[in-house]
């Protein structure tokens, strides 16, 4: 029963939403709006609660380790402080919530993201070698693409830009189309398998 009931719910809503997507009748549209606008949001709220509970549980376990405790405390403080600030002073305009968002979260995230540039620098020096003909073609294309995104006082003229646009319009786009078609077919197949109950891994490993 623990296995059958979720499968029935999943299959039922899978079929209903699929049918509703194509129906034009006002009652069907209204039901569709209720499911997408209200029910989906309620499910999201519960999923968020599960995520928060899991985050707290995992971090409290880690608190005992002295080396990790400063990070754990910072994480937990952030988790509790942000909702408290939002509840006390709101989240708009010049509220403390927005101040923390703009002056702590934005710079921290941008910094972590910017670290990628250093990894790219390291990889360029150590890993990007012309070891074979395909690697050389890739290397030359990457160099020209990089040049095309740079524009220092018009040093590189339009030729790098034109070549880069050609690479994007033909070899790159044909590969991208192949991937997109593959993703589309894979999504349809997986959805059908889940709706029909053939794919059951989402029920957990013991199911």
């Amino acid at each position: 029963m623990a296995r059958l009931f979720p499968q029935i719910i999943c299959g039922f809503f899978g079929v209903v939403l699929f049918v509703l997507y194509f129906l034009k009748a006002p009652s069907a549209k209204s039901l569709y709006l209720t499911i997408t606008s209200d029910y989906w949001q309620i499910i999201f709220a519960f999923a968020l609660l599960v995520g928060v509970a899991s985050f707290i549980r995992v971090n409290i376990k880690k608190l005992s380790k002295l080396s990790e405790s400063p990070y754990v405390i910072t994480g937990l403080l952030g988790l509790f402080a942000m909702p408290v600030m939002a509840l006390l002073w709101g989240i708009k305009g010049d509220s403390p919530f927005m101040w923390v968002f703009e002056n702590v979260q934005v710079p921290l995230q941008a910094t972590v993201f910017a670290l990628l540039a250093f990894f790219v620098a390291s990889a360029s020096l150590r890993g990007f070698k012309a070891r074979s003909l395909p690697a050389t073609i890739l290397l030359v294309s990457a160099l020209i693409a990089l040049l095309s995104r740079s524009d220092i006082f018009g040093w590189f003229g339009n030729s790098a830009l034109e070549f880069s646009e050609w690479v994007r319009s033909y070899p790159s786009m044909s590969a991208r189309r192949g991937i997109l078609i593959g993703i589309g077919l894979g999504s349809v197949t997986t959805s059908l398998r889940v709706i029909l109950g053939i794919e059951r891994t989402w029920l957990g490993k013991d199911r």
Binding site: G127, R131, R149, S150
Partner: peptide, 21 residues
């Protein structure tokens, strides 16, 4: 200017890496 210079620097690193290789 910063982005373009960083790109040129990356290109320079790729060239140095390949010459060494």
């Amino acid at each position: 200017l910063a982005q373009s210079s960083a790109h040129l620097y990356i290109i320079l690193l790729i060239i140095i890496g390949n010459v060494t290789y």
